[in-house]
Structures are given as structure tokens and as C-alpha cells.
Design a protein around this nucleic acid. Structure first.
Lengths: 151, 151
DNA sequence: TCACTCTTCTGGAATGAATCAAGTTTTCAG
DNA sequence: CTGAAAACTTGATTCATTCCAGAAGAGTGA
């Protein structure tokens, strides 16, 4: 199983180290976790890994394209290892859980902004906000904000 | 001109104070600024306003729906006063400038995720990533990352 | 297999955005 | 005009993230 990760690292000419393999394994088993959780997960197997190493590894893997960094407004950075398959995220406003969502519309219309202001676009990122099933049933009576804003 | 802001505040039953009027004026004149810039802008007219007041005001206005908080991955929080008109943003990867973009597709398809996992969605937020005109011309030779990922 | 070199990791300190807390001032309803 | 709640000031604190210097480890060529 770690052989896959080793191959991934070598494919982007990154050195194969214990912390890097551990981070990749942690992200495979726990998608959408924040840095602190990654540190805890990695230390479960390798107690001596420094927090700085995790930050370095996450940055290196992100730069190499092996993991993706996501950061919904008002939350700390989270990482996931599912990359390159054009998917988006649903975020629960009350508990913060994140779930994957495949693109709603067909091929790649999201790259077509109505007016790109001369920007050269290379990616369109979509975040759906709402309430997860648990939080929805937990407060059936009131909707404190009651906002309803489409795209 | 401040009369408008006063009316806006009263409409959401917030008390009318100098710091709040100043923040609203600053955001009207400078969209997409971060908290620190808001502080500087406000202090240009009202030097005694504390940074804590700005944070409180921005939170109050955001909760009330008068301003919107945006936070592209890897950047500090920014605020804008244009709300309720369903628009998105283009962010330059190299210099960080933000521009407004009206929704690409028709009415409100973005609220329709392919699989909502039981979430009750209330908003879809889109961030377009790319290079602004200035940064595009500045580095015509190389594209260091070369990533190309559609939605 | 054995160094040699460059990358990566460790440990600790520092930065900076954002929040918390206590006390004072201001707004606004009555 | 007066009182109570909301908002603001000052100052300290938290927390995620980054910086730094030295030690350890990975990979290359002999």
C-alpha cells in the first residue's frame, strides 16, 4: 500500500521519506482534515515527527499536485488527496463537515466566466454551503439565518 | 452619502455609530480589502478607532448581511459591500487581486449539485483562479505551474 | 557498498491574524 | 432627560503558520 505512495512521490521527483508516506496515508484514510489532525494521525504511527515536518510535507505535496489544499471561508486549511478529477465540496455551516461533490453541470462550463476582466483562468472552484443531514434534523424548528443565495 | 449607510444599519436594527459608518464607506470605495486595510482606511478619517472595533463591526455587518466576507485559499479574510446580487470572484494567483464576475450560467443552476449527500444547500460560491492582465504580461515566457483544472 | 551532497526533518522561537476580557463610553427607547 | 443595553477602548492572549539553525536522512556517483 505504501508502494503506491512511493511511486507517486517519485513521479514528481520528491524524495521518499517516512513523514511523507505517513501524510499520504493519513489523507487517504481521512479526507478533508486540517493540519492539526494530520499531525495527530501521523504521530499515531510515528510519534517523533515534528509539526514543522507536517507543514513542510503538506506544502511540498500541494506544490507537487499530489494533495489539494482547501480553505472554506472562516475555517483553517484542510487537505485532501483526491486530485485531478474535477470535484467540488459541500460545507456544513454549523458543524463544518465537508463532503465531495462531482461537478453539477456538464463538461467544463464553469471556466467560462461572464466577463473575465482580461484574466487568464485556469481553474474554477465551487463551494456549496448548507446544512448537513445531522445538523438539519438537529434544528428542525428554526433557521437562524434564513439566507438563500444562489450562485 | 452617510445617510444611506445610516438607513442600511437601521434596516437591520444595528445602532448607528461612527466606526460602522466609516467601515461601510471604506468598503464602498475599496471593494475586496482585507481587515488591515479597512483599519487603515477608517483611521484616515477617524484616527482613534481601535482595531478591535473594526473586527467587531465587520463581524456585525457580516452577520447582518450588509457586507460579505470572502477568503480565497491561502489569503487573509477580505470584505466587500456588494451583497445580494449573486456574483462571484476572479482571483489572481500571483498578485492576489480580486475582481467581480457575474454568474456565468443562466438563472441558478449552481445550487444543483450532482449529489448533495443529503445536505440542504443555500448558497453556491464560485472562485475563478487565474492570472490578471498585469501578471500575464509580466511573465510571458514561463508558466511555472502550468496547471489546468476545470471545475 | 561507501562516501558526498543536497534535501528534509527536528526543536525552538517568532510572526501575525483574530479573539478574549474588563472597564468605559455611546446610542437610543421610554 | 435618564437608564439599560450595545458598542468601543485598551491590553493581553490564543492559535495557525512560518522562520531559523543545526542534525539527520535520501539519493547519486564511484
Amino acid at each position: 500500500m505504501t508502494a503506491d505512495f512511493e511511486a507517486q512521490l517519485r513521479a514528481v521527483s520528491l524524495r521518499v521519506t517516512r513523514p511523507r508516506l505517513a501524510v499520504l496515508a493519513a489523507l487517504r484514510d481521512h479526507p478533508h482534515v486540517d493540519t492539526d489532525t494530520v499531525i495527530r494521525l501521523v504521530r499515531a504511527d510515528h510519534p517523533t515527527v515534528s509539526h514543522q515536518a507536517i507543514y513542510d510535507v503538506l506544502r511540498a505535496l500541494t506544490d507537487a499536485g499530489l494533495v489539494r489544499r482547501i480553505q472554506p471561508t472562516g475555517a483553517v486549511a484542510r487537505y485532501e488527496s483526491r486530485v485531478g478529477d474535477n470535484h467540488h465540496h459541500v460545507v456544513c455551516r454549523s458543524c463544518g463537515v465537508i463532503a465531495d461533490v462531482d461537478c453539477a453541470v456538464g463538461s467544463a462550463p464553469c471556466l467560462t466566466a461572464s466577463d473575465d476582466h482580461g484574466f487568464v483562468l485556469d481553474e474554477a472552484e465551487v463551494v456549496y454551503w448548507g446544512a448537513c443531514p445531522d445538523c438539519t434534523t438537529a434544528r428542525t424548528t428554526s433557521d437562524p439565518q434564513g439566507r438563500k443565495e444562489a450562485h
